[in-house]
Write a protein that binds this DNA or RNA. Structure first.
Lengths: 223, 223
DNA sequence: CCTTACAGAACGATTGTTCTGCTTGTAAAG
DNA sequence: CTTTACAAGCAGAACAATCGTTCTGTAAGG
C-alpha cells in the first residue's frame, strides 16, 4: 500500500515546520550527501559511461535499497549531483577568498586547477559532455547551467573591469577563459606533458591580461 | 570521391602483396568503412556512453555476425574509428585548400566548425573524453594522438610564423586555439545562444591575431 | 577445396528499476 | 509519561532488458 513515493525533488528538503534536527532527517541528508559524493568520485574515476548504480552504491558503502530510496532513478541522482557540483564550484569564487584580483594569471591558474585538477571539476566535465546527447538530462539541467553561468559572470564583473569600461567585454573575456579551461580536459590526451599545459595557461593569461583591470573594490558584501 | 583509405591498424596489416582489387577485399573494406561511419554517427548522436554494438550494427544496416567478423571486439572498432577520425580531420588542413592564411579569424572559424560543427569533430570529442578514464583504450591511442598533434603543429608552422620568429610560439598559440575550440563543446550547455559562441570565437581570434603572421609561401608541396 | 565473409543464436554478466519485508523514528492519542 | 499507529529509512531479492563476446552454421570468392 505504498503510495507514490515521489521523494520530492532535489531542492525541497525544506523540512517541515520543525527547526530541530531530527535523527531521521539528519541521517537522510547524510546518506544523500554520501551518495552524491560517491557519484562524483565515480564520474571522475570511471567516466560517465561506466558510472553505474552498482558502482556508486559500492563506492558509498550503501545498500542498494538505501540508494533507490533516496534517489528513485539514476537520473535523479545525477541531477542532484550536478546541483551539488555547481554549488560547490561557484561558492569559492563568490566570497573571493581565493581570487587575488591583482594577478590575473594566478587567478587563471586557480581556475584551471578548479576545473581540471579536482575530482569535482572533472566530474562536471563528464556530465556536461553527457548532456550533449542525453536530451532528457539536458532538459532538466539546462536552466540550472545557464543560471549558474550568469551568476558567475556577475561575480566576475564584480572583481574585474574592462579598460574600455564595457562590462560585457569582461564577461566575454572570462567566458573565453572558462571555455579554454574546459578544453584542457579534452586536449590533455594530445599534450601529456603537464609543463606544456601550464605554459599554455600562463600564455593564455598573458593574452587576456591587457583587457582586464582590477575593479576598485568598494563594499563587496557577499550576500 | 570518398575512397577513405583505412589501414587496418594494429591488427593484421591486411596483405598488401595483392595489387588487384578482389571482390572479396573490396567488400571487406566497404563493410569496415560502413561500420566506422556508423560508429561516428552513433558517437555523435548518442554519445560514448550510449553507443552500443547493437546500435552501431543497426545504424550500419549490418548483421551482428558481420560486425564481429571485421571487429572482434568493441575496442577494435573504436580504435579504427579514432584512426579514421584523426586522418580525415588532419587531411583538410594539410593541403590547406581551406585555410585562407591571410584572415586568421576566418581560419579559426573553420577550425571551430571542424571541431564542434561536424559529426566527426563531435565524435572525436566523445572518445577523447572517454580516454580520460578508459585506461585500456587510452594506452592504445595515446601515441596516435600525440603524433597527430605533432603533425598538426608542423603543418601550422608551415602556414604561420611568429613576429618574434619563434616557431614554438606559433605552436603554442595554435595549441591554445585548439584547446579553446574543444572547450566550446563543454561550454555550449552554459551558453546556448549560437551568436554568443560565434562572437567569442571572433574575439578569441582577435586576441591571438597579433601573434601570428602569414609565412612567406614557398613551395609547399604536400607530401 | 579452403579460407574468408557473413548470418544469427546463445552466452553469462551487468544494466536500471520494481517490489517485498523489516526496522525505527516520530508525533498524536491516551 | 506511556502507548500506539504510521510513514520513513533501509536491506536485498527479483525483474526484464541490454550489454559485449563467443559460438555454430552457411554461402561464396580465390
Amino acid at each position: 500500500m505504498t503510495t507514490a513515493r515521489l521523494h520530492s525533488s532535489a531542492t525541497s528538503q525544506s523540512s517541515t515546520k520543525n527547526g530541530a534536527n531530527g535523527v531521521r532527517q539528519r541521517r537522510s541528508l547524510e546518506a544523500r550527501h554520501k551518495l552524491i559524493e560517491a557519484t562524483i568520485a565515480c564520474l571522475d574515476k570511471f567516466g560517465y559511461a561506466d558510472t553505474s548504480i552498482a558502482r556508486i552504491q559500492d563506492q558509498a558503502s550503501v545498500s542498494r535499497g538505501a540508494l533507490t530510496h533516496h534517489f528513485p532513478s539514476k537520473e535523479e541522482l545525477v541531477i542532484a549531483t550536478i546541483d551539488s557540483l555547481l554549488e560547490t564550484l561557484l561558492r569559492p569564487s563568490l566570497p573571493s577568498k581565493k581570487l587575488s584580483q591583482t594577478d590575473i594569471v594566478a587567478d587563471l591558474r586557480w581556475l584551471a586547477r578548479n576545473m581540471t585538477g579536482t575530482a569535482r571539476g572533472r566530474a562536471l566535465s563528464e556530465v556536461l559532455m553527457a548532456t550533449r546527447t542525453d536530451k532528457k538530462l539536458s532538459a532538466r539541467v539546462n536552466r540550472r547551467l545557464t543560471d549558474w553561468n550568469t551568476k558567475l559572470d556577475e561575480a566576475v564583473v564584480g572583481f574585474y573591469a574592462s579598460p574600455t569600461g564595457d562590462d560585457d567585454d569582461v564577461r566575454q573575456i572570462w567566458m573565453i577563459a572558462r571555455t579554454f579551461m574546459r578544453g584542457l580536459i579534452l586536449q590533455q590526451p594530445f599534450t601529456p606533458d603537464p609543463a606544456q599545459i601550464e605554459q599554455a595557461i600562463n600564455r593564455f593569461g598573458a593574452l587576456i591580461a591587457p583587457y582586464l583591470e582590477t575593479r576598485k573594490r568598494e563594499g563587496v558584501t557577499d550576500a
